[in-house]
Simulated scan of single mutants.
Amino acid sequence: MRPIRLFVPGNIRHSSGGNVYNARLVDGLKALGAEVEVIAVEGSWPGAGGHERRRLGALLGASDRETDPGQPVTIVDGLVAVGAPDELEFAAKAGRQTWVLVHMPVPENAGSEALRREARAMRAATGVICTSTWAASELSKRGLPEARVVLPGVDPAPGAPGSTPPHLAVVAALLPNKDQLLVVEALARIRDLDWTASFVGSDQADPGYAREVRSAVIASGLQERLRLTGELTGEPLETQWARTDLTLLVSRTEAFGMAVTESLAHGIPVLVRAGTGAVEALSLAGLETSDGEPRLPGAAVPLPVGGQESPGRLAGVLRRWLEDAGVRESWRTAAVEARQKLPGWSSTAQGLLALLEARADGTPPGD
């Protein structure tokens, strides 16, 4: 087993899905006996400057021909890779085995130059690994090389007893894509019902958006019922999970959404935006009805971006969940059942090692 070097962006310091995946993957690889070195690459990735890109190139060994068969296998986080296509192309010419780990493809609205840089980086890579089927599908639509999927795992967690009145939580950094403003609008429409809520996530990732969310909470008169906790870890985060009855993840785009599986690990149902990768996370446990039909531990709701249709739709689903004890019980039962079927991080690490070893043996991954 060759050593592994994982290059991660040094500029993402809040708790993101990519950061969590990278850290837990490394733990899993080490538990399997792999030698892993994590290198945090400084720079404003993916828009790092020339100095940071040249440093990355030197670290990749892009200027040296590979002669040592024990040379480490390099995995570059996609946020870094799409900012350094030149360096990945040089590394490929030097014979380096360099994989790209894609958590989220470049957004379609990022512009043609950003998409070209992504395409060059993906084509220069030894192989592309995506952390969700949704991400791999997006790259395929762009005509890029086939990506292999290694889904996130989840840690076992204690079941959540919940609260009275019911408590709702959005576990995500305060970012425009996560659309906490939509949740505020929806909650304002059901203020006649009993509930409390928390937004659990960093307010430093986008301070301007965080101020917008706080202002919206106050303007809606929800400040006594909706709390912004900031980023939580460890016991304070577990305390939040313990009091939660329903989690919401209504991101405009989402490759997977590990907050979904983390919620299910606590036996808490989840409401997600239809059409995003979060639906894959919600259906990961593969639950079925007695008739063999798919059964979600929560709901995937169509929420168009823009306009005033989405707040009403979301409010309607939340109202039904709050007013109908049968709906609450069925979602909760499915979440508790899903809790027993979620894959652990060891399966993530095993899946990635299988891809690397298959390529080293000359066997097409997946054969």
Rank of each mutant, 00 (worst) to 15 (best):
210 A>S: 14
216 A>K: 06
353 L>F: 06
241 W>Q: 06
338 A>C: 08
221 G>D: 00
168 L>S: 10
238 E>Y: 00
150 V>K: 05
36 V>D: 02
340 Q>K: 11
220 S>C: 06
226 L>D: 03
293 E>G: 10
44 S>I: 08
326 G>E: 14
3 P>R: 09
200 V>M: 04
297 P>H: 12
298 G>E: 02
221 G>T: 00
80 V>K: 06
320 R>V: 09
150 V>I: 13
112 S>F: 12
210 A>K: 06
73 V>F: 00
114 A>D: 08
39 I>T: 14
56 L>R: 01
22 N>Y: 00
244 T>F: 03
218 I>K: 06
144 L>F: 01
344 G>N: 06
246 L>R: 05
127 G>R: 10
189 R>H: 08
262 E>F: 02
76 V>P: 05
49 G>W: 07
76 V>W: 05
134 W>V: 09
179 D>N: 15
236 P>Y: 07
86 D>C: 01
51 H>G: 13
212 E>F: 01
100 V>Y: 00
56 L>E: 00
199 F>K: 08
29 L>Q: 00
175 L>I: 07
263 S>N: 06
172 A>T: 06
364 P>R: 07
243 R>C: 05
107 P>C: 07
3 P>W: 07
263 S>D: 09
363 T>G: 00
64 D>T: 11
263 S>P: 10
265 A>E: 08
153 G>C: 01
96 R>C: 10
10 G>Q: 08
293 E>Q: 15
100 V>L: 01
254 E>P: 14
81 A>H: 03
302 P>H: 05
317 V>T: 07
157 A>L: 07
199 F>R: 09
39 I>R: 15
260 V>E: 12
268 I>S: 00
63 S>G: 13
268 I>M: 00
144 L>T: 05
51 H>R: 15
207 P>H: 06
274 A>L: 12
171 V>T: 10
41 V>F: 01
211 R>T: 14
339 R>Y: 05
339 R>F: 03
252 R>L: 13
171 V>C: 11
270 V>Q: 10
296 L>C: 05
23 A>G: 09
122 M>Q: 12
277 G>S: 12
